[in-house]
């Protein structure tokens, strides 16, 4: 949106209800467009400018801080029911610049740019000296833990074979020596008990995603795995909203920028259904 130097702008209070309304519309936009990682929630509005635009519209220019929640973006749980990731869990924040057009009382996003970053190790240590920090997602222990956990989950499942979508979070725990991982999965057209060659399995046309948490504990002469997956209701084949223009919402997982990303074609732009099923 061109914002000419001669146009007038207002600088309302950052906690003004209308400013907050714009910020919440921006957060909704993030959570419905981000393809990886976790939903974010509004933490603070840093700056706001309101440009008067002719005819009949205003452009809100916002800088906002967000915080990662524990809800994966594929989880249909409403944001209001998602818990903010606490400092002791190694919190992650997002910094976003937005421009939103307000017309007829409705906000629409015309520009967005977000970056996410984990809290510093020093800050985590201040509140919890022994808490594990986020680990790189391509760490060999992390990759191994996810592999073992997903294999264990499929071995116990009587339904579809689930394949990995993304590793979204990992921590290496020193005592007892263990690896904690969180990852997203998707159902395929193979049966879990009959999938001899997972490479031949295809994602279902009606996508069904799940989210898993697992701990792999090292033991003398072996290892133990504990995995819990929540499988969400299948997603309908409704057309998904697509990002338009030069938007760049990128609140990706934080620890490892080189970890393999899932094909965006396999992921929805928005979660459309409710009601998790725990397996």
């Amino acid at each position: 949106v061109p914002v000419g130097p001669t146009l007038a702008y207002d600088e309302p209070n950052c906690d003004d209800p209308e400013t907050e309304q714009a910020a919440l519309a921006a957060v909704d936009y993030i959570n419905s467009h981000v393809l990886r990682g976790y939903k974010h929630t509004l933490n603070q509005i840093d700056k706001v400018k309101v440009w008067l635009q002719q005819p009949g519209g205003q452009v809100f220019e916002l800088e906002i801080d967000t915080l990662e929640t524990t809800c994966h973006v594929l989880d249909p749980t409403p944001l209001a029911n998602c818990t903010v990731r606490q400092l002791v869990e190694h919190a992650v924040e997002g910094d976003c610049d937005f421009r939103l057009l307000k017309q007829d009382g409705q906000f629409s996003v015309v520009f967005s740019k977000c970056d996410s970053s984990p809290d510093s190790a020093e800050d985590v240590r201040k509140v919890c000296p022994d808490c594990p920090l986020l680990a790189p997602l391509n760490d060999t222990k992390v990759v191994h833990a996810v592999d073992v956990a997903l294999t264990a989950f499929n071995a116990q499942s009587n339904g579809s074979y689930f394949q990995l979508v993304e590793v979204s979070r990992a921590q290496l725990v020193p005592l007892p020596p263990s690896t904690y991982v969180e990852f997203a999965v998707a159902a395929t057209d193979c049966a879990a008990q009959e999938a001899t060659d997972p490479a031949q399995c295809n994602l279902l046309a009606e996508k069904q995603y799940g989210f898993c948490k697992a701990t792999l504990t090292e033991k003398v002469g072996g290892e133990d795995v504990a995995v819990t997956c929540t499988v969400f209701q299948p997603q309908s084949l409704l057309p998904q909203p697509q990002p338009d223009g030069p938007d760049a919402v990128a609140l990706a997982p934080v620890a490892d920028p080189v970890a393999p990303a899932p094909s965006p074609a396999d992921l929805p732009a928005a979660a459309l259904v409710v009601g998790p099923m725990v397996v």
Binding site: P12, C14, L42, N43, Q44, L67, A91
Partner: peptide
Amino acid sequence: KVVQPGIVAGPGPVVRPCPGRIRYFKV
């Protein structure tokens, strides 16, 4: 005729309109 004297505003607390409130904690 009673004239209300003008009220001269003294130096009050400075209101910082931005940034806004922190909803959870600062990272």
